[in-house]
């Protein structure tokens, strides 16, 4: 069981809370307290909009432990509107083919079972296609 480690990350997993660097104004996700762009301390929380587009993606068939029940699944690098990229699964795809550049938005979903026998479920962000006409 790894409850504390998932609990520590709840702001990131549920609300995409990162940081803004007060010196160079870079937006950071995940938060890391030291700005990778300018090297200064960055501790100002910043909530990302959850909107972005697909940088690249693939479909996984041979899953690592905890994901056996959800294969096949699509993993993407999503370029957020505010700059950073995140790794996330895509969801709610329906029959829509995934393409690089496709606009997506964050939703909260079940990510995986962490310890099947204890019934621990990890929730967090996934991204789904922006619905046509939603903006």
């Amino acid at each position: 069981m790894e409850n504390p480690r998932h609990w520590r990350l709840k702001k990131q997993r549920y609300a995409l809370i990162g940081e803004e660097c007060p010196y160079c104004k870079a937006h950071l996700f995940p938060p890391r307290d030291i700005c990778p762009e300018c090297g200064e301390e960055a501790r100002t929380p910043y909530a990302f909009s959850g909107r972005g587009e697909i940088y690249s993606f693939t479909v996984m068939h041979d899953a690592p432990a905890g994901f056996e029940d959800t294969t096949p699944y699509t993993v993407a690098l999503v370029k957020l509107q505010e700059g950073p990229m995140v790794t996330a699964q895509l969801t709610d795809l329906g029959d829509q083919p995934v393409q690089i550049g496709m606009p997506v938005e964050m939703v909260t979903r079940k990510i995986r079972t962490d310890d099947a026998s204890a019934g621990i479920i990890v929730y967090g962000y996934k991204f789904r296609p922006v619905l046509a006409g939603a903006r």
């Binding site: 990131q12 995940p30 690249s56 993606f57 693939t58 996984m60 041979d62 899953a63 690592p64 994901f67 959800t70 699944y73 993993v75 993407a76 690098l77 995140v86 790794t87 996330a88 699964q89 990510i111 995986r112 990890v122 967090g124």
Partner: peptide
């Protein structure tokens, strides 16, 4: 931030 999303070395390479 990567592996908890189901990323593996194969996924990285495919991406």
């Amino acid at each position: 931030y990567e592996m908890v999303q189901g990323m593996t070395p194969v996924t990285q390479a495919a991406i």
